[in-house]
Every structure is written in C-alpha cells, then in structure tokens.
C-alpha cells in the first residue's frame, strides 16, 4: 500500500515535525510512505483568493505527482478538503484533467480519517501526561466529517485526558489570507477561541491544521499565555511533541 504524503506548505516551512509524525504514524499502520520531492502547495490560496488559473496549475501538478499512490494523505483537513472537495470542481471543465482530479479526490484522506476509517489503526505510540482539549478545524469538520476519528485516537494515548471546550466546532478565525487581510477581526475571533481553551484548564490544545494552530498559538502568546501548548494531533499520537 503506497501512501503519498502531502506534507503541506505550512508544515514544510513552519513545523516540519508534524510531517515526521505523519510519516511515523503511517509507517506504523503498515503503509509504504512516499513523499514526492517536487510537491509544494495544493493551490488553496489561489482557489480561495480568486486566482482560479493559478490554483488549477498547482492542482494539476499535485495530481500528477501523486498518481502512482494508492492513497493521498495529509495532516491537514483544509488541504485534504482542497483536493477531495474542490479539485473536482476546479478542474471540472478541463477535458484531460477532470477524471484525474476525481480519481485523486477519491483516494485522498485526512490523516486521522485515513488511520481510523480506512486502516482501523489505533496502536498509537504517543504518551501525554495531562489534560488536552480538541479544536475541530472547520474544513476537516465541515468538508470532510473529521470529528470522531481524532478523538478516538487520542483516547488511546496513554496518560492523556480529553476535556471538551464550550464550542469546539466554532471557527478560530484563521481563514488563510483572511487572517492577514482582516487581521484585527481574525485576532478577535481567535480571542474567543482562546478564552474557551483557557476555561477548560487544559495544558494543551490539540487540532489537525497548522494554519489554525499558528492562529491560536499566536493569540494565546499575545494574550500572555506562555504555557498552554498548541499541538498537532499527529504530534500527540506519534509521541513527537517537541
């Protein structure tokens, strides 16, 4: 079973450890992990920013890079949503690419979704002594239905206790370019999320998308919280929290 890992541009640049955690988990689950060296970005910034042609070029590039893989997996609900939900729409009118886009979409899964739904894997090596709270990132939750899978896997992490925040499904305010273009609003939304995280008293907040992590961590630090950790679910599951 060849599993192509979409590292994602943010993980590549900002937090490579998430990529390693994903590689580790997939190998433990019995996959042969392939990481195409030419991969860059899935095209989501262009797609969400109105640059359809730019997005389509990157979509075709990614599809071609992963065509030899049985599965395409990413540690990100939003990048997987881009491939799984939006590529078929983006390339629908492209005679040579629409079928390839549909095929790629059908083979693409978010990491925890892949481990649980496709492989039934839950022998996670991670250990975490303490309480965490889980934030459901929007694209994973509402585009892909990622909700129970990360919780099911986190329940297998020894020492970890999950306590839910008041509104785990409400947006953290990231929204890609929105978070820079409308930074004040994004920070205000993030503040509500941070207040809910603080209310739980958890030592860490765990989620599945690095963009949202940067937004939440950035706001936590700015509001003076130097201790609450912001972790990717793959890092916790793989025991690679540092």
């Amino acid at each position: 079973m060849r599993v192509g890992l979409v590292v994602t541009c943010l993980v590549d640049l900002m937090r490579p450890g998430i990529g390693w955690a994903a590689v580790d988990l997939l190998e433990r689950a019995g996959a042969e992990v392939v990481v195409p060296a030419t991969q860059t970005c899935c095209g989501q910034p262009g797609w969400n920013g109105g640059d359809r042609a730019g997005a389509a070029a990157l979509a075709r590039k990614l599809i071609a890079e992963f065509e030899g893989c049985d599965w395409i997996v990413a540690p990100s609900g939003s990048c997987v949503g881009m491939i799984r939900v939006h590529y078929p729409t983006l390339l629908a009118d492209d005679a040579t690419w629409s079928e390839r886009a549909r095929s790629a979409a059908a083979r693409t899964r978010e990491l925890t979704q892949f481990l649980v739904d496709e492989l039934g894997f839950d022998a996670v090596p991670g250990r975490h002594d303490g309480t965490v709270t889980y934030h459901d990132c929007c694209a994973g939750l509402r585009e892909l239905g990622v909700k129970s899978q990360p919780r099911r896997l986190l329940a297998k992490v020894s020492g970890l206790e999950l306590t839910e925040m008041a509104e785990p499904e409400s947006c953290c305010g990231f929204g890609g370019a929105f978070s820079v273009k409308f930074g004040e609003i994004a920070a205000h939304i993030a503040e509500r999320k941070c207040a809910q995280i603080a209310e739980t008293g958890a030592g860490a907040v765990v989620m599945g998308d690095l963009g949202c992590m940067l937004n939440v961590e950035g706001r936590l630090r700015r509001r003076g919280d130097a201790s609450t950790r912001v972790l990717h679910v793959a890092e916790v599951l793989a025991g690679r929290e540092d």
């Binding site: 590292v7 993980v11 590549d12 640049l13 900002m14 937090r15 490579p16 450890g17 990529g19 390693w20 990481v35 060296a37 978070s179 820079v180 273009k181 409308f182 930074g183 004040e184 994004a186 920070a187 205000h188 993030a190 503040e191 992590m213 940067l214 937004n215 961590e217 950035g218 706001r219 630090r221 700015r222 912001v230």
Partner: peptide, 24 residues
C-alpha cells in the same frame, strides 16, 4: 510584511529547516 497578522497575534517562529530539506 505581515502587519495584519501581528497586530493582534504573535507568529510562532519555525524550526529553521524545512521538511523537504530534512527529508532529503
């Protein structure tokens, strides 16, 4: 260049080497 971001949030800094670099 990212004043919109840092007006209300810090930006956590990266490790310094990209995943692609490390992997290669």
């Amino acid at each position: 260049p990212g004043g919109g971001w840092t007006a209300g949030r810090d930006l956590p800094a990266p490790d310094g080497r990209t995943f692609r670099e490390q992997y290669a």
